[in-house]
């Protein structure tokens, strides 16, 4: 384990397209995230926050700069190595929940463990524990179509948690939910953070960002400012 920050971005640039059509989405992002932080990333659309999240989630490669995750330089890793890094250390929660249709909540939560080759009995137990952790134990046999939006997002969170990740990446986790459900989810994320999981969340709603410890504002492909959220005192 390195003693530096959990995540470190140094002069990250990202250019889409080539020649005249080229568009520079990131123009040199510098950001450090410590273990145990709860970071909300905000900014208008096109400000580079999603691109940054994709890079942090090891789904995309920066064009230039240095990205260290747990001290490891990610930009020099192969596609497969990045997949393995996601598998071991990252959990994803998406705006659209992205659960497998016609698949029970339990099987959805099991999925990451399948790729880890966890034996069946252990896999079932871990998935069940994770579902219980998000309060959906009794819904284990339901398919996404039989669950409400808030419940679906909690299944997605259970899936992200089942592997005990270092970092939970949430892209607009409340984007498809009404405000009551949104607050419920945010409270839950805050609880998880208090249990020690580092959370990175993209949102455009200030009241959701307020749950975080740190709020990072993006503008025009750069970090504009960093402020403390209310979560720090909660």
């Amino acid at each position: 384990m390195s003693t530096g920050p959990l995540i470190e971005l140094r002069g990250i640039t990202k250019t889409f397209g080539e020649g005249a059509a080229a568009f520079q989405a990131l123009k040199g992002v510098n950001l450090s995230i410590e273990r145990g932080d709860f970071v909300a990333v905000m900014g208008p659309s096109g400000s580079g926050k999603s691109t940054t999240m994709n890079i942090l989630g090891c789904l995309d490669q920066p064009t230039g700069g240095v990205f260290r995750f747990m001290g490891q330089e990610v930009q020099s890793l192969t596609k497969d190595q990045r997949s393995l890094l996601r598998r071991r250390y990252l959990g994803f929660v998406f705006q659209g929940f992205n659960l497998l249709a016609r698949t029970t909540a339990l099987e959805n939560v099991e999925l990451p463990l399948l790729y880890r080759g966890t034996p069946k009995a252990e896999r079932r137990a871990a998935a069940m524990r994770s579902l219980e952790r998000v309060g959906l134990g009794p819904w284990a046999d339901h398919t996404p179509a039989e669950l409400s939006g808030g419940q679906q997002q909690r299944v997605a969170i259970a899936r992200a948690l089942v592997t005990d990740p270092e970092v939970l990446l949430a892209d607009e986790p409340t984007g498809n939910l009404d405000s009551e459900r949104s607050i419920e989810i945010m409270k839950f994320l805050r609880e998880l953070n208090q249990q020690g999981i580092t959370i990175l969340m993209v949102t455009h709603e200030p009241e959701m960002a307020a749950f975080a410890k740190t709020i990072v504002h993006f503008k025009d492909g750069l970090v504009e400012r960093i402020e403390a959220g209310e979560g720090i005192t909660a």
Partner: peptide, 14 residues
């Protein structure tokens, strides 16, 4: 989308 989910949660291309 399903393939995207699988890749995101760490499935290798192979």
């Amino acid at each position: 989308r399903e393939i995207g989910i699988r890749l995101a949660i760490g499935a290798l291309a192979r």
